[in-house]
Simulated assay, not measured.
Amino acid sequence: MSRSRALQYYVLSRLLLAPLMIWTITTVIFLLLRATPGDPIDSLLGPRAPESAKAELRASLGLDAPLWLQYLRYMGSLLRFDLGTSLASQGQSVWEIIQQHFPATMELAIFSMLVSVVVGVSVGALAASKPNTPIDVGGRLFGIFTYAVPMYWFGMLLQLVFAVQLRWFPLGTRYPLRMAAPQGPTGLYVVDSLLHANFEQFFTSLYYLALPSLTLGLLLSGIFERMVRVNLKQTLKADYVEAARARGIPESRIVVAHALKNALIPVITVLGLTFASLLGGAILTEVTFSWPGLANRLYSAISLRDYPVVQGIMVFFSVIVALASILIDILNAYIDPRIRY
């Protein structure tokens, strides 16, 4: 089989598996929501509402139908790209909720990823280039700490120190209420303020974004630190590295220009999947910092037993993760032909 034909076959197989993955996630979410205790009708009307009112609302929402019929109706709506309407937001569609809150999650994920990559790769490369030294030990401790520490605890600690005690950063919002938020096509405040050349809004957006993105980025940097450190240590033992040293090339140039480039190849997979998980799993970060993103809105919907919103947001996130997984697999297959066999 030729290289191009093998790559085409691999890409096709991954594309065919994506709908199965999304369908499985959707089905599991549908069943788990209805298996957990609680009634969305009680959340909407309160437990003391008359039973007749509860029954009427349950019938109007289709929640009185058998479980299999609810599932078929839901899957039929998904095939029409209809994610439903919120039960608790006065008829607001799930697509409107996603459009309203997703840009905040995207902005937080982008800047958190930048912080995690820069810090993780730098610390990992420095630790690997100084093996069996205090710097190497410090790098390992950094990776263990950032990987193991609970996000909510670390986030509250940083807020207590830098926002409450030192008053260096703001709390509990994405943009000051007394100022008009940036408006633009992307919904990303940093980008839209740059598009309008409004540097006051740009720096204000960065200021309010700094503490949440630093918190999440530092905790994620441990993943990249450990991967870069391990791979770079192995790469520095390769024959071509020894040959470069024999030619008198400075060690810093060997690490940066030769070894680090090859050591970063396995990081591509983790980079893509970590970014996808940031978009879909930053609930603790957004709740801890009261960040008005889609993950925080998902948390509220779970608390209110808002079935359509929970299901719609989870389907949206699962599609993002599936697409990111496919793109990363294709990129790895293109870089390393052994993956296709």
Rank of each mutant, 00 (worst) to 15 (best):
P266F: 05
T146F: 11
Q8S: 09
A301W: 04
A282K: 04
P185W: 08
G143P: 12
L216H: 15
V137D: 04
G62V: 13
V118G: 00
I25V: 15
V137H: 11
S89G: 03
L141Y: 07
T105K: 02
L72Q: 09
R34F: 02
P292Y: 08
Q92D: 10
L12I: 15
T274G: 00
G76H: 07
V121F: 09
G38W: 01
S325V: 04
L214Y: 09
L108P: 11
V267L: 10
I25Q: 00
V11Y: 05
A259S: 09
R5I: 05
V28Q: 02
I249K: 01
G280E: 01
I254A: 01
Y307P: 10
T105N: 00
V319L: 08
P185L: 01
S43P: 01
N332V: 10
L57G: 04
R178V: 15
W153V: 09
K237E: 04
A301R: 03
L264G: 03
W95A: 03
T105I: 13
S122P: 07
F317C: 07
W291A: 06
R229A: 03
A163M: 08
L211D: 04
G184S: 09
P292L: 05
L304I: 06
L331V: 09
S129Q: 15
R338V: 14
G281V: 04
G124H: 13
I268K: 06
L12G: 15
Y9S: 13
T173R: 12
L20T: 15
L236S: 05
S60C: 05
G281T: 02
G139K: 09
R253K: 05
G91R: 10
G272Q: 00
R297A: 11
R305M: 05
V191H: 09
